[in-house]
Computed example of a mutant assay.
Amino acid sequence: MKPQNDINSVAKKVLLQEAEAIQGVAAAISETQDFAQCVETILSLRGRVVVTGVGKSAHIAAKIVATLNSTGTPALFMHAADAIHGDLGMIQPEDFVVAISKSGDTPEIKVLVPLLRRKGVLLAALVCNASSYLATQADYVLHAPVEREACPHNLAPTTSTTAALALGDALAVCLLEARQFSSADFARLHPGGTLGKKLYLKVGDLSRQNEKPKVTLEAPLKEIILEISGKRLGATAVLDPDDDTLLGIITDGDLRRMLTNFARLDDVRARDIMTPRPVTVDLDDFAVEALTRMQQRNITQLIVTEQGSFSGFIHLHDLLREGLV
């Protein structure tokens, strides 16, 4: 086995070579209008984007399809080899086909292209070789120039697949921005898992499950302690007795600090130990925003408000339970 330094050197070389290839792809975009025209055509499309390829290019095609679907562009994956054995039937006249091939001259692609032409669909070629059969037959050429693979034998698809994947990501993001696809749109397509929760879970979804500890300005120490311990959120809100306006917060930490600041505890009232103008979060804010505010201030609970009025509490444990931390 090679020494550690040699392994790191090889890894660094691969990454730098692939990064350089992506820079070349970025430069190639400005050489023609094909990329921009391809985006505009897809935006006006009545059908779907069908992405195809064979070998490693098929894997890249499948990933690009997943990215397009998740960012608002309906897409289908079609393996180039399966297409000529029946899967070609999934393509409709309103669809747009993106064929991925490093050489642009693979046998499956050469068989597939005339069949696509008969169906009358628009075709974009995502290729390394802009002079290839596929490129010359396509309506648009998405050029991903790659001089050599990161493989030392220049055989295993590495740099070329990275370049194709990056160009596919660029296509998806351009479409996303052109459609003004928002985080709310993204959330509707990603309701599962932690990512989905970050995009749709609101503070109110969690705070409504909690108790609502509250005391008035003149509440004595015993009442404060019972409210905090009984409601088990580590804090209580302090409200104006006349109109329930939020005036402050008392936490477990405030109680501990009180012991060193007051000689006579019988006379302590809520107004003496509360923190005025507490940090709050709105009922309709995303739960992840509550987490951000807690982390910024190194606290474990926030008062929740609804249209400026006290509504309850959200605790760090609520966010932990939902897997947001």
Rank of each mutant, 00 (worst) to 15 (best):
K12M: 05
K13L: 07
Q17K: 05
Q23L: 12
Q37R: 13
C38V: 01
V39F: 00
T41S: 09
R46W: 00
G47C: 08
G47K: 13
T52R: 12
G53M: 05
L68G: 11
S70E: 04
T71L: 07
P74Q: 06
D82L: 07
A83R: 14
I84A: 14
P107N: 08
L112R: 14
L116G: 11
A124K: 04
A124S: 13
C128T: 15
S132Y: 15
T136I: 08
L142T: 04
E147S: 15
R148Y: 09
L155G: 12
T158L: 05
T158I: 06
T162Q: 06
L165S: 03
A172V: 02
T194F: 04
G196T: 02
L201E: 00
G204R: 03
L206S: 01
E211R: 13
K212S: 07
L217Y: 01
P220S: 00
E223P: 00
I228F: 00
G230W: 10
T236Y: 05
L239G: 00
T251P: 07
T251E: 05
G253R: 13
R257G: 06
L259K: 09
A263I: 07
P278T: 01
V281K: 03
V281Y: 01
D282K: 08
I299P: 10
Q301D: 02
L316R: 11
L324Y: 08
